[in-house]
Nucleic acid binder design. Structure first.
Lengths: 252, 252
DNA sequence: CCAATCTCCGTACAGCGTACGACGTAACCC
DNA sequence: GGGTTACGTCGTACGCTGTACGGAGATTGG
């Protein structure tokens, strides 16, 4: 995972939109397609995490040499952009026209949650300067529709959507990290705490942190672990929607 | 950045709490201290990002061989845990006793925002299974105090704090990513869009994405970029606190 | 038919984390 | 005080990463 290539912007955009540059290719026929490469990389990522999506590994599942991939995408970063846009494109987009705004936004959140459930790696990658491809555009258009006609101006619509999606992605990222940690430490959260508790009890004085100890213990007992992604999502979504409500109800 | 060592849990905890195991060290006197290593790594991370915090680079700034670091911390992952706990420990914690809860939580958010401003790498790392060290405990205790005596039960206090911190960290992560992308693509957001806009206009039909084009353009014009971290923070914090208000006001 | 141009990919390089072991140093035991 | 033993330091090496380079073969345009 070293530095990135110069990354000609035009090349990546053409790839994202599957914009064939030439009418006739001169060399031998291509054995693969961009879609096949992206699909193979995505499957690998879904199964073993983004860290396992190496050029060599992807190439091996396709039965080609590693360097062959570079004729389909200019590098690993571009490949991941393509994976992400393809994942966006394949999201199911439920029609919630006519439903109240809270139901509409709940559906949007749920769709994104499903995306990150199917593709946990996506939560760790989709940050700034997203791949402006057909998948992202379709997703953006669909999600803005859920915020349309609520009396918000364009900038507020964008801000509300960013806020909601940020929440869902944050949840997914934490959940994905938690699973990754359990896997590569081969230790469940429960076992981890069991292993650390006696040591911690010896090392620090519970009286120094009365609130932290009390609240931490209560939360741990209540959800059987230090962190429960489902609870965090349910609670957080309710809070997030309540927060948007103050803006939306005022605007109506 | 390959796999992690077995990571003896006890070893890391002892390090976090600076728990000297023996009363007398037998070999030659240590040339460095754990704190010095952590400080050097932190400075490097602040200046050049977490990706530049390599064992070799940190060792070089300290004038020692790379492998020497392993006598102070069992590996890179542990070193980053130590960096994070130290950063937590050094946060300024303002006393907001007596102030209304909204001011208290605003202060908590601001303190975390300052943390991520000083240590942008922290936003990209502080996810699951955090380092249970003195810094984290002090931070947790302090932040819970801002939520105490509001009529919330322990589990709600934990959930509210997690929700608020998740928002701030998400903001910081996006902002840090945006800066990183600008740096290593050596292209400002403005230039990036200028380079892509004509290409995008040619490639896709604006009529296919009426809302996306309209809202995207409005947001871009309004903040001079596709994403403005300050705006996102201000807007998001207001929404987040409004969302918590529905729970807190009900509980009082 | 030839040259141009494309695909495929073996090899190589720099950089990463870190396992291993050599070597010197300091404290313990007697 | 001398031997033993534990420890700090760190050079070397291994397996991994992304990818630059260039050769070999295939296909097409002229």
């Amino acid at each position: 995972m070293t530095s990135s290539p110069p990354s000609d912007p035009a090349r990546l955009l053409a790839l994202l939109w599957r914009d064939q540059p030439s009418v006739s290719r001169r060399g031998p026929v291509r054995a693969l397609t961009v879609d096949a490469v992206v699909a193979a990389a995505t499957q690998l990522g879904d199964r073993e995490g983004l860290g396992s999506v190496t050029m060599r590994a992807v190439a091996q599942t396709l039965g080609v040499g590693a360097m062959t991939l570079y004729t389909y995408a200019p590098g690993r970063a571009a490949l991941i952009d393509l994976m992400l846009d393809a994942a966006y494109a394949q999201m199911t987009r439920t029609d919630t026209g006519g439903q109240p705004w809270r139901a509409r936004l709940t559906a949007i959140a749920q769709e994104n949650r499903a995306l990150f459930e199917q593709h946990p790696w996506a939560a760790t990658v989709a940050a700034s300067r997203p791949p402006v491809g057909p998948g992202l555009m379709a997703k953006f258009e669909h999600e803005l529709a859920a915020l349309d006609k609520l009396g918000l101006d364009d900038i507020e619509m964008d801000a509300c959507l960013t806020h909601l999606l940020g929440f869902v992605q944050g949840c997914a990222r934490t959940a994905a990290d938690a699973r990754a940690v359990e896997i590569d430490s081969s230790m469940s959260d429960q076992k981890w705490w069991d292993a650390h508790a006696p040591l911690l009890a010896r090392i620090f004085d519970a009286e120094d942190y009365p609130l932290a100890v009390r609240v931490g213990a209560a939360a741990g007992v209540a959800q059987g672990a230090a962190y429960d992604p489902d609870n965090a999502y349910r609670f957080g979504l309710a809070r997030t929607l309540d927060g948007l409500a103050t803006l939306i109800d005022k605007a109506r």
